[in-house]
């Protein structure tokens, strides 16, 4: 089971605690850390192994610069922005996911669940790559160039589920692009050359 940590960084106490309560209701194995400002967020990143951050971008004093340097660190951290309705596209593009605080309960839960990639069912087997069998199936299709919609149709699952599997694959393998996943799949004989075209 993947442990790792998630930081909730938000200055409004109510919003922060609300997000934490929702996350806890998902019964996640992630260790939840909270921060009310950017400095303590950075501090937590240094002290713990953190692979996800849900943050209000307004907390970051110089967001563009900081998000750049975050990318320069060596492990993959996935980022979710807390949107209070005033985020510019320029900031949004640095995030993997956006959560709007005006969403209703089920929207919020779906967003969070997708973000933390929580789809792993009890007892699901993993093969030697660390990917579950389901994830491996999806990887094969991604590597063969199928879109999320096509994969969803083929496997009779929702696109949300596909997306959350894909997030897991990316964070397990450390490969972000489709081209990179294709090389991985070829190297491991998950697909053959003809499939890749």
């Amino acid at each position: 089971m993947r442990g790792g940590g998630i930081i909730i960084a938000e200055n409004f106490y109510l919003i922060r605690k609300g997000l934490i309560a929702l996350l806890e209701s998902l019964d996640t194995p992630l260790r939840i850390h909270e921060a009310a400002d950017w400095e303590s967020t950075r501090d937590l990143m240094v002290r713990y192994s953190v692979n996800m951050i849900i943050i209000n971008p307004e907390l970051i004093p110089d967001a563009k610069t900081e998000l750049h340097s975050l990318k320069m660190s060596h492990h993959i951290i996935t980022l979710m922005a807390i949107d209070k309705g005033n985020l510019s596209d320029n900031i949004k593009k640095h995030f993997d996911e956006i959560i709007s605080i005006s969403g209703n309960k089920s929207e919020l839960i779906t967003r969070l669940r997708n973000f933390i990639g929580q789809k792993k069912r009890e007892g699901e087997k993993t093969n030697n790559t660390g990917l579950s069998i389901r994830e491996t199936d999806i990887l094969k299709l991604v590597a063969r160039g199928y879109t999320n919609q096509e994969i969803a149709d083929q496997l009779f699952i929702s696109t949300h589920t596909v997306i959350s599997h894909r997030k897991n694959i990316v964070s397990k393998l450390g490969i972000k692009t489709v081209a990179g996943l294709t090389v991985y799949a070829l190297l491991n004989n998950l697909i053959n050359m003809d499939d890749a075209r």
Partner: peptide, 18 residues
Amino acid sequence: NVEEKLFDLKNIIIKYLP
């Protein structure tokens, strides 16, 4: 982000290439 693919390439060499 033009560096994304480079990141992948590095990881493929470090982790997966025989």
